[in-house]
Design a protein around this nucleic acid. Sequence first.
RNA 1: CGGGGCGUAGCGCAGCCUGGUAGCGCAUCUGGUUUGGGACCAGAGGGUCGUAGGUUCAAAUCCUACCGCCCCGACCA
Length: 442
Amino acid sequence: MFLSKSFIPLLKNYPSEAKIKSHKLMLRLGMIKQSSAGIYSWLPLGFKVMKKIEQIVREEQNKIGAQEILMPTIQSSEIWKESGRYEDYGEEMLRIKDRQNREILYGPTNEELVTDIFRNSIKSYKSLPQLLYHIQWKFRDELRPRFGIMRCREFFMKDAYSFDLNDDDAEFSYNKFFLSYLKTFKRLELSAIPMTAETGPIGGSLSHEFIILAETGESKIYTDKRIFEVNHDNYKLDKESLKKLRLKYEQFYAVTDEKIDNKEFNNKVDKKNQLETKGIEVGHIFYFGDKYSKPMNAAVDKDGKKFFVKMGSYGIGVSRLVGALIEANFDEKNEVMKWPVSVSPFECAIICFASKNDTTSIEMGIKVKNFLEQNNIETVLDDSDENFSGKLKKFNLIGIPFQILIGKNPDKNKVEFKEVGNNSKMISLEEALNFIKSKKIN
RNA sequence: CGGGGCGUAGCGCAGCCUGGUAGCGCAUCUGGUUUGGGACCAGAGGGUCGUAGGUUCAAAUCCUACCGCCCCGACCA
């Protein structure tokens, strides 16, 4: 990609309406464009990042045996009346009437819809467990949308649903998602803490919020620092192993300000291990048993008897993660952003000296670009005639983790290669390629 | 929804108090000189001043209503 041909409308200053760094940077880099309060269009730079996050989430869902479906954004009110939530959900649900005057709604979540799909198809306990997920737009009519895409009204979310015969199996399903979430966030280079949480309007008995640390987060959290040292790499998808994993996390105190009990915090956690900070909720998992299956009559047969299936639901805020990654990786003071390679909009930036009279730098840049692209490295080449220093500043913000700088009299055999945050070095193009490849493995 | 603020060119702002027909920086376009941490010179284009009504010879400016956006709070998978 040539930067001059891209649709990446960069600004030289921050739009005044943005206050937190992810919102500021996303507007300045032209990643998103606000359409109305809490509703955004995603422009190429932002969309690429979101799609890469989506793909990582998808792969980790598939790994635990979840199957992808796609449910509509618009739902009928009838199933919500069946579950009883049409009245309970309140003003956050966007209710619409169609031309036949039927009540429809823009889905804020999909428990009812997926339960309806399930009950029409699955009749035998032999088909269990079922883990279904989709990645789809949701709408919640927030009283006050804010912070750009962090708390918006229309947002992109992965939500999964599990169906099991009994509590024990259901807990196994729950734990699969627990592990899947830890792996997903790790691939995004985020350290997320699972915290025991309130179940809210979803209802149920078991719930964890996954929180990443960030000063601009909306949740105040109290935790034992040692929770960050828990390693989840060696756990397998079997009941015992996953139970152990959850216990390993749950031994450490970790709660939000809704649940903080200072006495308990001081008793359970040594002063030196106490961490009191703010975080962003990027995932939330719930177990709620037969809360929906019972009123909606989603049951399977076993031994001549009917069993209401035991359900859980599991959300990851895909669009919110774009903002969360910026909150975690953008050094606003020095104006330096660095995306994890796994989700960076491009993997390598090629920054060329450009002049009408001297095209050697650009020509060299195009060779480098072709070589990297042939080797499946996504590149963007800045071929504009802006000052070199201006380009450097600009790319500091765009956050592509690797840069190849091509100045006035480029070396024929070596390129100036830089990983953001480190000094540049002169190496061969093959070495640069291998270095990027080694960092891509994830 | 309670409290506060704002709406003037793509972005950041001035002008409003004291009414006289719109300006600055950045960005964009042309030409030239530059180029390693956000250059320089010369020229050009771009705005129904959020919308509607009112006052006035005259409204970005004063008055009224509405709309939109931001912040604090309440709210929040």
